[in-house]
Amino acid sequence: MTPYSLAFYLHVVTSGSVLGARPADTPQRVAELLGTDFAENSFDDQSMWRDYGLVEFFWDRQSAGQPWSGHHFTVQVHRLAHGASSVPGALLRSRYGRFDRRLRFAKLRRLSERRGTELVEVPHVQAPCYRTFWQPESLTSVTVIGAHEEYVTPGNLRVGDVYSIGAPTRPEKVECGATRVR
């Protein structure tokens, strides 16, 4: 893994943002920071998400006339295991270089802790196949492949690989044990 792409993941985990874009930011603000190279999806005029390849941002609203409210983002690390060269998106590649197909959680955790950023294991609704680690200050969660089980675990990932990184994961969600793969 290039040190630059690892720096990207570390920044997401420690800051709870992607290139400065935060989960609560408006679609316009996210586009200012991440660019306009995205696929946009919507459902019932009340939810929308933008797919930037490796990163997805999500919004919702009460009705079609209301402004969008930022809900969360997810860094879909598992997509890299399929080898799609365009997955990270042009902006991420220009800043961080090549992204490896897998991100080993042990390496991410070790480097995070060296920087004083602790990742605490919390319950996951699909344990033991998935494990979740939470960073309380940035409200970021890291979902890791915990075990292989037919029809549940993606075949291209190994035990110990990061599946996704998301934010925000609020304390009340952690307390009720409701963390899950986004």
Rank of each mutant, 00 (worst) to 15 (best):
P3N: 15
P3H: 10
Y4K: 11
S5V: 02
L6P: 01
L6G: 02
F8R: 03
L10E: 03
H11Q: 15
S15G: 11
S15D: 11
S15Q: 15
G16C: 10
G16H: 04
V18R: 09
L19V: 07
G20E: 10
G20S: 07
R22K: 14
P23Y: 06
T26F: 06
P27L: 09
R29V: 13
V30R: 03
A31I: 01
E32Q: 11
E32Y: 01
G35A: 01
G35P: 02
T36A: 06
D37S: 10
E40Q: 12
N41E: 14
S42H: 05
S47F: 00
S47D: 08
S47I: 00
R50Q: 11
D51F: 04
D51Q: 06
D51I: 03
Y52S: 08
G53K: 02
E56W: 03
F58K: 06
W59Q: 08
W59I: 05
D60P: 00
R61K: 11
R61I: 00
G65K: 14
G65W: 08
P67S: 06
W68H: 01
S69Q: 14
G70P: 04
G70D: 04
H71C: 02
Q76G: 09
Q76T: 09
H78P: 05
R79K: 15
R79M: 08
A81R: 04
H82A: 11
G83H: 01
A84G: 14
S85N: 06
P88V: 01
P88D: 00
G89K: 01
G89A: 01
A90V: 12
A90D: 14
L91G: 04
L91S: 06
L92D: 05
R93Q: 13
S94V: 08
S94W: 08
S94I: 10
Y96R: 04
R98T: 15
F99P: 07
R102I: 07
L103G: 05
R104S: 07
F105D: 09
A106G: 10
K107H: 12
L108H: 03
E113N: 10
R114P: 07
G116I: 12
G116Y: 12
P123F: 11
H124W: 06
Q126D: 15
Q126M: 15
Q126A: 15
A127D: 09
T132S: 15
T132Q: 10
W134E: 00
W134L: 11
Q135D: 00
E137I: 13
E137M: 15
S138G: 09
S138R: 05
S138N: 06
T140D: 00
S141A: 15
V142C: 12
V142R: 08
T143H: 06
V144Q: 05
V144S: 08
I145H: 07
I145C: 13
G146T: 04
G146E: 07
H148L: 13
H148V: 12
V152P: 03
T153F: 13
P154E: 13
G155K: 13
N156S: 12
L157I: 03
G160S: 07
D161E: 10
V162M: 08
I165Y: 05
I165E: 06
G166D: 09
A167H: 04
P168S: 10
R170W: 04
P171T: 04
P171V: 09
P171K: 13
E172C: 13
E172N: 15
E175Y: 08
C176E: 00
C176F: 01
C176P: 00
G177L: 10
T179F: 01
T179C: 14
R182A: 14
R182E: 13
